[in-house]
Computed example of a mutant assay.
Amino acid sequence: MPRVTRFAALTTAALLTASLAACSSPSSAGTDASSTDGAFEPITIEHALGTTVIETQPERVATVNWANHEVPLALGVVPVGMAAANFGDDDGDGLLPWVEEKLTELGAETPVLFDETDGIDFEAVADTDPDVILAAYSGLTQEDYDTLSEIAPVVAYPETAWGTPWREMIELNSEAIGKKAEGEELIADLETQISDAAAEYPQLEGTSAAFLTHVDTADLSEVSFYTTHDTRAMFFDDLGLTTPESIATASATTDLFALTQSAEQADAFTDIDIIVTYGGDELLTALEADPLLSQMPAVANKAIVALPGTTPLGTAANPTPLSISWVLDDYLALLAEAADKA
Rank of each mutant, 00 (worst) to 15 (best):
residue 195 S to R: 15
residue 164 T to K: 11
residue 170 I to H: 06
residue 184 E to D: 13
residue 186 L to G: 05
residue 123 E to Y: 11
residue 148 L to N: 03
residue 158 P to G: 15
residue 165 P to D: 13
residue 111 P to M: 12
residue 97 P to Q: 12
residue 164 T to I: 11
residue 188 A to V: 05
residue 101 E to R: 14
residue 148 L to M: 08
residue 149 S to Y: 14
residue 135 A to R: 06
residue 142 Q to G: 00
residue 196 D to T: 12
residue 128 T to K: 01
residue 160 T to G: 08
residue 185 E to T: 05
residue 177 I to Y: 03
residue 123 E to G: 07
residue 121 D to C: 04
residue 169 M to P: 00
residue 98 W to Y: 10
residue 123 E to N: 07
residue 101 E to V: 00
residue 164 T to H: 13
residue 109 E to W: 03
residue 110 T to N: 06
residue 119 G to F: 06
residue 135 A to E: 04
residue 130 P to K: 05
residue 106 L to H: 08
residue 168 E to N: 07
residue 184 E to Y: 06
residue 110 T to W: 08
residue 146 D to R: 15
residue 169 M to G: 05
residue 195 S to W: 11
residue 162 W to V: 04
residue 196 D to L: 05
residue 127 D to Q: 13
residue 189 D to Y: 07
residue 194 I to K: 12
residue 166 W to M: 14
residue 182 E to N: 02
residue 120 I to Q: 04
residue 194 I to Q: 13
residue 151 I to P: 02
residue 109 E to S: 15
residue 103 L to S: 07
residue 131 D to Q: 05
residue 189 D to Q: 14
residue 150 E to Y: 11
residue 138 S to Q: 04
residue 118 D to Q: 09
residue 181 A to F: 03
residue 140 L to S: 02
residue 99 V to G: 06
residue 153 P to C: 12
residue 123 E to K: 08
residue 106 L to R: 09
residue 142 Q to N: 00
residue 141 T to H: 06
residue 193 Q to F: 05
residue 181 A to G: 04
residue 113 L to A: 02
residue 134 L to E: 06
residue 146 D to I: 15
residue 111 P to T: 11
residue 198 A to V: 15
residue 113 L to Y: 03
residue 153 P to A: 12
residue 146 D to L: 15
residue 147 T to G: 06
residue 99 V to P: 05
residue 129 D to N: 14
residue 180 K to A: 13
residue 96 L to E: 12
residue 187 I to H: 10
residue 137 Y to M: 00
residue 103 L to N: 06
residue 164 T to S: 10
residue 136 A to P: 00
residue 189 D to N: 11
residue 110 T to G: 09
residue 144 D to M: 06
residue 197 A to R: 15
residue 141 T to C: 03
residue 146 D to A: 15
residue 142 Q to R: 09
residue 167 R to G: 13
residue 118 D to F: 11
residue 107 G to D: 14
residue 148 L to P: 02
residue 135 A to W: 05
residue 101 E to D: 15
residue 126 A to L: 02
residue 126 A to V: 01
residue 96 L to S: 10
residue 198 A to K: 12
residue 162 W to L: 13
residue 160 T to K: 14
residue 151 I to G: 00
residue 139 G to P: 12
residue 124 A to R: 01
residue 106 L to K: 09
residue 179 K to G: 02
residue 174 S to Y: 02
residue 178 G to E: 04
residue 138 S to I: 02
residue 172 L to I: 12
residue 156 A to F: 13
residue 160 T to H: 12
residue 142 Q to H: 01
residue 108 A to E: 05
residue 144 D to E: 02
residue 143 E to R: 07
residue 152 A to N: 10
residue 169 M to S: 08
residue 194 I to C: 13
residue 143 E to V: 00
residue 186 L to D: 07
residue 118 D to I: 01
residue 114 F to G: 02
residue 172 L to Y: 13
residue 182 E to A: 05
residue 163 G to D: 06
residue 151 I to F: 03
